[in-house]
Nucleic acid binder design. Sequence first.
DNA 1: CTAACTGTATCACTTGACATATACACCAAT
DNA 2: ATTGGTGTATATGTCAAGTGATACAGTTAG
Lengths: 152, 152
Amino acid sequence: MLIVVDPHSGVPVYRQLMDQIKLHVASGLLKPGDELPSTRALSSELGVNPMTISKAYSFLERDDIVERRPGRPLVVKTVTGGVIRDRRVEELRKSLAPTVTMVKQLGLSDEEAVRAFADLLESTREPGEGSGDEPRPDDPDNGTTDEEVSRA
Amino acid sequence: MLIVVDPHSGVPVYRQLMDQIKLHVASGLLKPGDELPSTRALSSELGVNPMTISKAYSFLERDDIVERRPGRPLVVKTVTGGVIRDRRVEELRKSLAPTVTMVKQLGLSDEEAVRAFADLLESTREPGEGSGDEPRPDDPDNGTTDEEVSRA
DNA sequence: CTAACTGTATCACTTGACATATACACCAAT
DNA sequence: ATTGGTGTATATGTCAAGTGATACAGTTAG
């Protein structure tokens, strides 16, 4: 169980936690029934407030990744891989919606659009692009890397 | 020159303006040398503060879409022999960029992502329409009501 | 010159997201 | 009951984005 957090990445800490835990669940490193590290444990290891951990946990419960039992550690929920997959595809669809509109508006053919998408995916196979959001109006300069690490 | 703004969409107004103007430039509706509507004109038509328009304009200049001449209206910048089609594909690429990032983050396969995109495009196709190459200047989707419109 | 346009720099305000400190509720073992 | 675990509701603080009111600078026409 490796967790890495960079408070200066621009990506909210609670979201970094979510993403990495989701990843660990998806990859099978965290199996159904496994307990998550306690909020305070993670808190002291990562130097993050327990509430921030809790926030991540809450969202994970909202996403049905994790099960909540009062007074006890959270456990990975028993869940078929299919559910997770469906959720991801759902996210993907949401992300694609505006582009679909644009394609129609620009009058581009579906084939062209699909090809462009495929090309982009292909060309980004393993580059060093920073994770995160679309380039925003102002560029919040990252570059720094002092990260907090947790291993269990 | 159609501009639609929805202050409740969650997308910043200045960004809605940018996107639509970029789109109009990409589609050829706005040609190099054309003047943009004045900040105050757009302001009163859309019910938006002139500064918000100005902000959009400033970013458009930063993106080399538009040229700034003190005391005079902004004009669409002379684009070096760029074929309209290329501009459109460029816009498409930009629109797809965040989704590409997301696909990588979610660990979805390229094929899956492409298929999802194709499905979405397919399902939004209007009956009786060829995969046209002509721009459709009309109707930027938008399910919500409550919009401000400007036509020029 | 004045007038009527252009765009915008500056400052102030609102709003929402994020992170946090504190205090509380629950469970299990002693 | 007490102690030491668990998670978290609540309130507070911070900060940046977005927006807007005002005042100002440049251009063009009279």
